[in-house]
């Protein structure tokens, strides 16, 4: 898939703050198509994994109740500027994407 993940990671005083934006429709499966009246099938990211040096720093489990084009931010200790982070997601239709980003 095309690039769907935007990441910004910054180290300050030993704490790395990671912010990411993913482009994804995040359909909950409860919305109706206004023209046909049919339910739009659920299509949302289920898992977002962030790895730092092969160590899973954060695993986010999501449902369709996360807003469209999701935003996620978290912090962790032990990262330094120049280290790389690997971020990947998988949705309920089996699609996935991943990216690597350098900590600034």
């Amino acid at each position: 898939m095309a690039k769907t993940i935007k990441v910004r990671a910054r180290a300050k005083d030993g704490v790395v703050t990671v912010k990411m934006l993913i482009s994804h429709p995040m359909e909950s499966g409860r919305r109706k198509n206004k023209k046909t009246g049919k339910l739009i099938p659920a299509h949302f990211i289920q898992e977002v994994v962030t790895e730092h040096n092969g160590n899973k720093v954060l695993v986010a489990n999501w449902s369709g109740a996360i807003s469209k084009n999701p935003y996620l931010s978290f912090k962790f200790k032990g990262g330094a500027a120049g280290d790389s982070l690997k971020i990947s997601w998988v949705d309920n239709q089996g699609k996935s994407d991943s990216t690597t980003a350098k900590i600034k």
């Binding site: 704490v15 720093v57 695993v59 986010a60 935003y71 996620l72 931010s73 978290f74 912090k75 200790k77």
Partner: peptide
């Protein structure tokens, strides 16, 4: 959210 080693108890979404 499952916090791994080093992750601080902070999540924003």
């Amino acid at each position: 959210y499952e916090l791994g080693e080093g992750a601080l108890p902070y999540v924003s979404t």
